[in-house]
Simulated assay, not measured.
Amino acid sequence: MADVSVIILTHNEEKHIARCLQSLHPFTDKIFIVDSFSTDNTVEIARSLGATVVQNPWVNYALQFNYGIDHTPFETGWLMRMDADEYVLPELAEEINQRLTTLSEDVSGIYVKRRVLFFDKWIRHGDYYPIWLLRLWRRQQGICEETWMDEHIKLSQGKSIQFQHDLVDHNLNNLTWWTQKHNNYAIREVIDLLNIKYNFDKTQRVEPKLFGSQEQRTRYLKIQYASLPLFTRPFLYFFYRYFFRFGFLDGKKGLIWHFLQGLWYRFLVDAKMFEVYFHAGRDKESIIQFFRTHYGKDLSPTNRP
Protein backbone atom coordinates (compact mmCIF):
# COMPACT_ATOMS: atom_id res chain seq x y z
CA MET A 1 0.00 0.00 0.00
CA ALA A 2 1.26 3.47 -0.85
CA ASP A 3 2.05 6.05 1.83
CA VAL A 4 -0.91 8.21 0.84
CA SER A 5 -4.26 9.17 2.32
CA VAL A 6 -7.20 10.51 0.32
CA ILE A 7 -9.50 13.42 1.18
CA ILE A 8 -13.01 13.53 -0.30
CA LEU A 9 -15.80 16.05 0.23
CA THR A 10 -19.35 14.70 0.06
CA HIS A 11 -22.96 15.76 0.12
CA ASN A 12 -25.61 13.25 -1.00
CA GLU A 13 -23.23 11.12 -3.08
CA GLU A 14 -24.76 7.67 -2.56
CA LYS A 15 -24.75 7.09 -6.33
CA HIS A 16 -20.99 7.56 -6.55
CA ILE A 17 -19.20 7.00 -3.26
CA ALA A 18 -18.88 3.21 -3.34
CA ARG A 19 -17.40 3.27 -6.85
CA CYS A 20 -14.94 5.96 -5.81
CA LEU A 21 -13.79 4.20 -2.63
CA GLN A 22 -13.45 0.81 -4.27
CA SER A 23 -11.13 2.33 -6.87
CA LEU A 24 -8.87 3.63 -4.07
CA HIS A 25 -8.55 0.37 -2.13
CA PRO A 26 -5.79 -1.11 -4.35
CA PHE A 27 -3.35 1.54 -3.10
CA THR A 28 -4.69 2.88 0.23
CA ASP A 29 -7.13 2.14 3.04
CA LYS A 30 -6.65 5.61 4.54
CA ILE A 31 -9.63 7.61 3.29
CA PHE A 32 -10.94 10.71 5.07
CA ILE A 33 -14.35 12.05 4.12
CA VAL A 34 -15.65 15.47 5.14
CA ASP A 35 -19.40 15.29 4.69
CA SER A 36 -21.65 18.35 4.77
CA PHE A 37 -24.58 16.58 6.46
CA SER A 38 -25.83 14.32 3.69
CA THR A 39 -29.48 13.27 3.92
CA ASP A 40 -29.06 10.08 1.89
CA ASN A 41 -26.94 6.97 2.58
CA THR A 42 -23.56 8.50 1.71
CA VAL A 43 -22.13 8.34 5.24
CA GLU A 44 -23.34 4.79 5.90
CA ILE A 45 -21.94 3.48 2.60
CA ALA A 46 -18.60 5.23 3.13
CA ARG A 47 -18.16 3.89 6.65
CA SER A 48 -19.12 0.38 5.55
CA LEU A 49 -16.25 0.54 3.06
CA GLY A 50 -13.72 1.58 5.68
CA ALA A 51 -13.62 5.37 5.28
CA THR A 52 -13.29 7.70 8.24
CA VAL A 53 -16.15 10.21 8.06
CA VAL A 54 -16.67 13.50 9.87
CA GLN A 55 -19.34 16.09 9.26
CA ASN A 56 -18.71 19.80 8.96
CA PRO A 57 -21.02 22.64 7.83
CA TRP A 58 -20.50 23.72 4.22
CA VAL A 59 -19.31 27.27 3.51
CA ASN A 60 -17.40 26.79 0.26
CA TYR A 61 -15.15 24.23 -1.37
CA ALA A 62 -11.78 25.72 -0.37
CA LEU A 63 -12.64 26.10 3.31
CA GLN A 64 -14.13 22.61 3.45
CA PHE A 65 -11.18 20.99 1.74
CA ASN A 66 -8.62 22.85 3.84
CA TYR A 67 -10.58 21.67 6.88
CA GLY A 68 -10.00 18.16 5.57
CA ILE A 69 -6.26 18.81 5.21
CA ASP A 70 -6.04 20.20 8.74
CA HIS A 71 -8.11 17.45 10.41
CA THR A 72 -7.16 14.28 8.56
CA PRO A 73 -6.33 11.61 11.16
CA PHE A 74 -3.78 9.88 8.94
CA GLU A 75 -0.06 10.72 9.21
CA THR A 76 0.86 9.70 5.68
CA GLY A 77 3.65 11.35 3.73
CA TRP A 78 1.34 12.14 0.81
CA LEU A 79 -2.22 13.45 0.47
CA MET A 80 -4.56 13.01 -2.47
CA ARG A 81 -7.64 14.93 -3.55
CA MET A 82 -10.62 13.14 -5.06
CA ASP A 83 -14.20 14.08 -5.85
CA ALA A 84 -16.91 11.59 -5.00
CA ASP A 85 -18.03 11.23 -8.63
CA GLU A 86 -14.50 10.34 -9.75
CA TYR A 87 -12.65 7.05 -9.67
CA VAL A 88 -9.08 5.93 -10.19
CA LEU A 89 -8.30 3.59 -13.06
CA PRO A 90 -6.39 0.40 -12.10
CA GLU A 91 -3.38 1.58 -14.11
CA LEU A 92 -3.13 4.77 -12.06
CA ALA A 93 -3.55 2.84 -8.81
CA GLU A 94 -0.65 0.59 -9.84
CA GLU A 95 1.44 3.59 -10.84
CA ILE A 96 0.87 5.21 -7.43
CA ASN A 97 1.92 2.00 -5.68
CA GLN A 98 5.04 1.59 -7.79
CA ARG A 99 6.32 5.14 -8.21
CA LEU A 100 5.44 7.07 -5.06
CA THR A 101 8.29 5.65 -2.96
CA THR A 102 10.83 6.23 -5.74
CA LEU A 103 10.38 10.01 -5.99
CA SER A 104 13.16 12.36 -4.92
CA GLU A 105 12.62 14.69 -1.96
CA ASP A 106 12.40 17.76 -4.19
CA VAL A 107 9.20 16.43 -5.79
CA SER A 108 6.25 17.87 -3.85
CA GLY A 109 3.33 17.46 -6.25
CA ILE A 110 2.02 15.03 -8.84
CA TYR A 111 -0.25 15.80 -11.78
CA VAL A 112 -2.62 13.18 -13.15
CA LYS A 113 -4.88 13.24 -16.19
CA ARG A 114 -8.63 13.45 -15.79
CA ARG A 115 -10.91 12.03 -18.46
CA VAL A 116 -14.56 13.11 -18.49
CA LEU A 117 -17.38 10.69 -19.32
CA PHE A 118 -20.75 12.09 -20.36
CA PHE A 119 -23.63 9.68 -21.06
CA ASP A 120 -20.91 7.01 -20.75
CA LYS A 121 -19.00 8.72 -23.59
CA TRP A 122 -15.35 9.64 -23.12
CA ILE A 123 -15.01 13.29 -24.21
CA ARG A 124 -11.67 13.07 -25.98
CA HIS A 125 -11.78 16.21 -28.12
CA GLY A 126 -12.59 19.89 -27.87
CA ASP A 127 -9.41 20.58 -25.86
CA TYR A 128 -11.00 18.61 -23.02
CA TYR A 129 -8.49 15.78 -22.77
CA PRO A 130 -6.03 15.53 -21.25
CA ILE A 131 -6.87 17.81 -18.33
CA TRP A 132 -3.86 17.75 -16.00
CA LEU A 133 -4.70 18.26 -12.32
CA LEU A 134 -2.41 18.38 -9.31
CA ARG A 135 -4.01 15.69 -7.18
CA LEU A 136 -1.20 14.33 -4.98
CA TRP A 137 1.15 16.38 -2.82
CA ARG A 138 3.43 15.96 0.17
CA ARG A 139 1.92 16.60 3.58
CA GLN A 140 2.16 20.25 4.69
CA GLN A 141 3.35 21.33 1.25
CA GLY A 142 -0.02 21.98 -0.41
CA ILE A 143 -3.24 23.85 0.30
CA CYS A 144 -6.46 24.52 -1.63
CA GLU A 145 -6.48 28.10 -2.94
CA GLU A 146 -9.43 30.22 -1.84
CA THR A 147 -11.08 31.32 -5.06
CA TRP A 148 -14.69 31.65 -6.12
CA MET A 149 -14.26 29.12 -8.94
CA ASP A 150 -11.81 26.47 -10.20
CA GLU A 151 -9.99 25.92 -6.91
CA HIS A 152 -6.57 24.33 -7.28
CA ILE A 153 -4.01 22.85 -4.92
CA LYS A 154 -1.10 25.27 -4.50
CA LEU A 155 2.32 23.95 -3.55
CA SER A 156 4.38 25.87 -1.00
CA GLN A 157 7.68 24.39 -2.18
CA GLY A 158 9.28 21.83 -4.42
CA LYS A 159 8.58 20.81 -7.99
CA SER A 160 5.85 18.76 -9.60
CA ILE A 161 5.88 15.84 -12.02
CA GLN A 162 3.31 14.01 -14.12
CA PHE A 163 2.05 10.47 -13.79
CA GLN A 164 1.00 8.72 -16.96
CA HIS A 165 -2.40 7.23 -16.13
CA ASP A 166 -5.87 8.61 -15.56
CA LEU A 167 -8.65 9.16 -13.13
CA VAL A 168 -12.19 9.39 -14.47
CA ASP A 169 -14.90 11.99 -13.85
CA HIS A 170 -18.21 10.22 -14.50
CA ASN A 171 -21.23 11.80 -12.85
CA LEU A 172 -24.33 9.59 -12.85
CA ASN A 173 -26.94 12.27 -12.10
CA ASN A 174 -29.43 13.43 -14.73
CA LEU A 175 -29.33 16.53 -16.92
CA THR A 176 -31.73 18.43 -14.69
CA TRP A 177 -29.27 18.03 -11.82
CA TRP A 178 -26.38 19.00 -14.14
CA THR A 179 -28.05 22.20 -15.38
CA GLN A 180 -29.09 23.23 -11.87
CA LYS A 181 -25.54 22.67 -10.67
CA HIS A 182 -24.12 24.81 -13.48
CA ASN A 183 -26.73 27.49 -12.87
CA ASN A 184 -25.32 27.74 -9.35
CA TYR A 185 -21.76 27.64 -10.71
CA ALA A 186 -22.55 30.53 -13.05
CA ILE A 187 -22.79 33.19 -10.35
CA ARG A 188 -19.47 32.04 -8.87
CA GLU A 189 -17.98 32.23 -12.36
CA VAL A 190 -19.31 35.79 -12.70
CA ILE A 191 -17.61 36.76 -9.45
CA ASP A 192 -14.35 35.14 -10.55
CA LEU A 193 -14.41 37.01 -13.88
CA LEU A 194 -15.30 40.32 -12.21
CA ASN A 195 -12.56 39.72 -9.68
CA ILE A 196 -10.01 39.87 -12.50
CA LYS A 197 -11.02 43.49 -13.06
CA TYR A 198 -12.00 44.64 -9.57
CA ASN A 199 -9.78 42.47 -7.32
CA PHE A 200 -12.46 42.16 -4.64
CA ASP A 201 -10.75 39.87 -2.16
CA LYS A 202 -7.05 40.40 -3.00
CA THR A 203 -6.42 36.67 -2.63
CA GLN A 204 -3.20 35.42 -4.18
CA ARG A 205 -4.13 33.25 -7.14
CA VAL A 206 -2.20 30.75 -9.20
CA GLU A 207 0.25 32.74 -11.30
CA PRO A 208 -1.14 33.13 -14.85
CA LYS A 209 1.30 31.77 -17.42
CA LEU A 210 0.56 30.64 -20.96
CA PHE A 211 3.32 28.02 -21.02
CA GLY A 212 3.18 27.04 -17.36
CA SER A 213 1.24 24.25 -15.66
CA GLN A 214 -2.34 23.49 -16.73
CA GLU A 215 -3.85 25.67 -13.98
CA GLN A 216 -1.42 28.53 -14.79
CA ARG A 217 -2.41 28.28 -18.45
CA THR A 218 -6.11 28.10 -17.52
CA ARG A 219 -5.78 31.20 -15.36
CA TYR A 220 -3.94 33.06 -18.15
CA LEU A 221 -6.61 32.15 -20.70
CA LYS A 222 -9.41 33.12 -18.30
CA ILE A 223 -7.86 36.59 -17.96
CA GLN A 224 -7.78 36.90 -21.74
CA TYR A 225 -11.36 35.59 -21.98
CA ALA A 226 -12.52 38.17 -19.42
CA SER A 227 -11.34 40.98 -21.69
CA LEU A 228 -13.57 39.88 -24.60
CA PRO A 229 -17.04 41.41 -25.19
CA LEU A 230 -20.08 39.97 -23.44
CA PHE A 231 -22.18 37.56 -25.55
CA THR A 232 -19.42 37.33 -28.17
CA ARG A 233 -16.95 35.28 -26.17
CA PRO A 234 -19.26 32.26 -25.55
CA PHE A 235 -19.69 31.74 -29.31
CA LEU A 236 -15.96 32.21 -29.95
CA TYR A 237 -15.17 29.70 -27.22
CA PHE A 238 -17.67 27.15 -28.55
CA PHE A 239 -16.41 27.58 -32.12
CA TYR A 240 -12.84 27.05 -30.90
CA ARG A 241 -13.74 23.91 -28.99
CA TYR A 242 -16.21 22.32 -31.37
CA PHE A 243 -14.59 23.05 -34.71
CA PHE A 244 -10.97 24.17 -34.26
CA ARG A 245 -10.29 21.58 -31.54
CA PHE A 246 -12.41 18.88 -33.23
CA GLY A 247 -15.12 18.58 -30.61
CA PHE A 248 -17.45 17.37 -33.38
CA LEU A 249 -15.51 14.09 -33.38
CA ASP A 250 -17.12 13.26 -30.02
CA GLY A 251 -20.41 12.54 -31.80
CA LYS A 252 -23.96 13.27 -30.67
CA LYS A 253 -23.17 12.95 -26.96
CA GLY A 254 -20.18 15.20 -27.48
CA LEU A 255 -22.38 17.78 -29.20
CA ILE A 256 -24.62 17.89 -26.13
CA TRP A 257 -21.60 18.21 -23.83
CA HIS A 258 -19.74 20.88 -25.79
CA PHE A 259 -22.92 22.88 -26.40
CA LEU A 260 -24.04 22.84 -22.77
CA GLN A 261 -20.63 23.20 -21.13
CA GLY A 262 -18.94 25.32 -23.79
CA LEU A 263 -21.78 27.59 -25.00
CA TRP A 264 -24.96 27.44 -22.87
CA TYR A 265 -23.11 27.72 -19.57
CA ARG A 266 -20.79 30.48 -20.81
CA PHE A 267 -23.75 32.42 -22.23
CA LEU A 268 -25.57 32.07 -18.90
CA VAL A 269 -22.51 33.51 -17.14
CA ASP A 270 -22.56 36.51 -19.48
CA ALA A 271 -26.31 36.98 -18.93
CA LYS A 272 -25.78 37.04 -15.18
CA MET A 273 -22.91 39.49 -15.61
CA PHE A 274 -25.17 41.69 -17.74
CA GLU A 275 -27.69 41.54 -14.90
CA VAL A 276 -25.04 42.77 -12.46
CA TYR A 277 -24.10 45.70 -14.70
CA PHE A 278 -27.79 46.47 -15.37
CA HIS A 279 -28.65 46.79 -11.68
CA ALA A 280 -25.36 47.98 -10.19
CA GLY A 281 -23.47 49.69 -12.98
CA ARG A 282 -19.69 49.31 -13.06
CA ASP A 283 -18.80 50.92 -9.75
CA LYS A 284 -16.93 48.46 -7.54
CA GLU A 285 -18.74 49.29 -4.31
CA SER A 286 -22.14 49.14 -6.00
CA ILE A 287 -21.29 45.68 -7.38
CA ILE A 288 -20.20 44.48 -3.94
CA GLN A 289 -23.49 45.74 -2.49
CA PHE A 290 -25.47 44.04 -5.28
CA PHE A 291 -23.99 40.65 -4.51
CA ARG A 292 -24.50 41.15 -0.80
CA THR A 293 -28.16 42.09 -1.29
CA HIS A 294 -29.24 39.76 -4.12
CA TYR A 295 -27.03 36.69 -3.63
CA GLY A 296 -25.95 36.88 0.02
CA LYS A 297 -22.29 36.86 -1.01
CA ASP A 298 -19.83 39.28 0.58
CA LEU A 299 -17.02 40.14 -1.84
CA SER A 300 -15.17 42.55 0.44
CA PRO A 301 -11.47 41.80 1.12
CA THR A 302 -12.11 40.49 4.64
CA ASN A 303 -14.59 37.88 3.38
CA ARG A 304 -12.84 35.44 1.11
CA PRO A 305 -14.90 32.79 -0.69
Rank of each mutant, 00 (worst) to 15 (best):
F238V: 11
L103N: 10
S156V: 05
T218V: 09
L136N: 04
E86V: 06
A186M: 10
I45K: 01
M273P: 10
T147R: 03
F259I: 04
T39M: 02
L117V: 01
E207I: 14
F74W: 11
Q261S: 11
P301V: 03
N41H: 12
T52Y: 07
T102C: 10
G109C: 08
I123A: 01
Q22H: 10
L263T: 10
I143T: 14
P57A: 01
W177A: 06
V168K: 00
E91N: 06
L268Y: 01
D169G: 00
R81E: 10
K202Q: 14
Q289R: 09
L49E: 03
Y185A: 10
W122S: 04
V112M: 03
A226V: 03
D150P: 01
S5T: 09
V107C: 04
F291C: 02
G68S: 12
R304S: 14
I191A: 04
R135E: 07
K181M: 12
F267I: 03
F231M: 14
M273I: 13
K159F: 01
F32Q: 06
V54Q: 04
S227C: 05
L24Q: 05
W137A: 13
L255M: 09
W132H: 15
K15I: 04
K253M: 08
L103T: 13
G50Y: 04
R245Y: 03
P26V: 03
